[in-house]
Design a protein around this nucleic acid. Structure first.
Lengths: 133, 133
DNA sequence: ATTAGTGCAAATCGTTTGCACCCAG
DNA sequence: CTGGGTGCAAACGATTTGCACTAAT
């Protein structure tokens, strides 16, 4: 017998969510996405938006970052390890790689006797457009 | 006249919270701290624990990190800029400084036209003690 | 037919706030 | 005295879940 055939179905609502995400150039909250879908005429329940996003995150096709307030922002992103440079105002996101930083983090951790190391790095700022207002 | 004389009073409950925090060697959630205080016989309301922690954070005497689940962990810490190496199991925390990383972050941001740069870096792992179980 | 997916409402969860009472200065 | 502090209960905001219904395969 097959271990666990996770048959993921293709539905209209998932398509709508994916389509919207692909148009985004920055991160958005589940609620924002839900509202945008509504305005655009796509009928998708908030619950489904959450479930779809979670699915994408688990699959590694999207990633979520938590705002200081606790709200999560989602975005599609590459599957390779990387970090984000996020605009505080518009949410625009730039993926950045930093081999040196990765090494630094692992080094610091092992130096202190830690194993199973992982890390979180987020850089926030105001992008040129938003700075120009 | 004085601008805003924020007269912070010294109360029994604030003392209890501070005392507990000083005994901690790692980060704890507000709820955990509240429970620990209760077990120790100190009568402090959960609300007060939250308010006191927020006060400490604002004053820069403590800092908070958000767990993937959205829950915040608090700990007393030095006022200088630094990052944390946290044990996933026991919450033990080690403050780490990384001048090079700070520079890297600022560099990446400005290279992309971002201003008002700030960042968040957290390193997670399993400390020696917990690894040994 | 099967069974995953959907959506609404109700339930969680951590955290915040309104408000009447209390105590440090 | 007086305004900051406290605590309980109610309010909150984001996210999750129970459940009956709909639709993809």
């Amino acid at each position: 017998m097959k271990p666990t055939p996770p048959a993921t179905r293709s539905t209209r609502q998932r398509g709508e969510v994916m389509a919207l995400l692909q148009e985004m150039d920055g991160a958005r909250s589940a609620q924002q996405l839900h509202m945008m879908l509504r305005e655009r005429g796509a009928k998708v329940g908030l619950t489904t938006v959450y479930r779809t996003l979670q699915l994408l995150v688990d699959a590694g096709d999207a990633d979520a970052t938590r705002l200081p307030g606790g709200e999560q922002l989602f975005r599609l992103c590459s599957r390779t390890h990387h970090h984000h440079l996020v605009c505080r105002d518009c949410g625009k996101t730039v993926e950045v790689a930093g081999p040196a930083v990765e090494r630094w983090a692992d080094q610091v951790a092992t130096d202190n006797g830690f194993t199973d190391v992982s890390h979180t790095i987020e850089i926030f700022g105001t992008c040129r457009d938003c700075a120009a207002r």
